[in-house]
Amino acid sequence: MNRKVKSAIILNLLLCVILLVSACSTSSNTSTASDNASTSETTETTQPTERILEDAMGNEVEIPANPQSIIASYLEDHLVALGVKPAAQWSIADGTSVQNYLQDSLNEIPTIPSDLPFEAVMSFSPDLILMDTAGMVEGDKYEQYSKIAPTYVVASDEDNDWRKKLLRIGEVLNKSDEAKEVLENYDLKAKEAKEQLEQEIGTKPVAILWVTAKSIYVPNVNLSSGAVLYGDLGLTAPQAIQEVSETGTANWNALSLEKLAEMEAEYVFIVNGKGVTKDELLQDPVWAGIPAVKNGRVYEYDKQASWLYTGAIANLQMIDNVMESILK
């Protein structure tokens, strides 16, 4: 009995020691590896245009002078707006699902899984990695990504201000002027559209409804497509959407169907993810009381369109959609 216990303990102590030793030896190797990496980086610092910028998490990031291969998953909108092609683009489901609305520009860019596995990132040999939010590098993944390439975290949390993001990315890519220009152009276009819409529909309420199999979502008036239509284009949100926005913090919040039935919207934009056609949807008696439905002012866009995204390109497309629908 005793011997049995003893041998078991010894065996396991041995195992632990082996693990410990292997861990120690490998970690010392790691440090040499990173030493190598940093020496190779210091040779690059001699180039005059390389800069050190502080990112949203407070990391000092050495930005290469002229990055050629950039990975900026879910930030592609901003890159496209600045005329930069990324090395790989955000995707899910083995690259079969991408951000459709950007495919005019990103058609030939290979895909990378949205969770950005280290080895997948590495296979593109990027020289700059842009991370959308701090959540993507949770668990000190930052350290590991930055061993592949300088890694810059754009926003500290789920920050929905795309203007700030665009300006920051412009700064990182040495394209601050271009970023400002994009914003100016956007504001100009939004202002023109706003004036036209003001003449056309005044303060008649306009609703955005994302229709899924079981529920209906409305955007917060200050976020996502709500910010574009109710902010930039100055449209009036129906009572129910304003009410939901007061406490609903997410980009999109579920709307009670009773509130939908009572909605006083004169114009309705449907982001359709339901699998039924607009006509079938509008036959539902719950929808029948909405003024927009009575007057035939319901416009439908697929959920693959830019309505569920945010960024200069996405928002411009949304504005185009609104104009072509309402001023038709």
């Binding site: 078991a8 303990i9 396991n12 410990l20 861990a23 970690s27 949770e138 668990g139 590991q144």
Partner: peptide, 24 residues
């Protein structure tokens, strides 16, 4: 999700103290 050596170091004491203790 915790995949670097810092976490290995943080994890190791729990395992090498508690598991032998349960053997005991």
């Amino acid at each position: 999700w915790a995949t670097n050596w810092k976490f290995v170091v943080a994890m190791l004491p729990w395992i090498i103290i508690l598991i032998p203790y349960t053997f005991y």
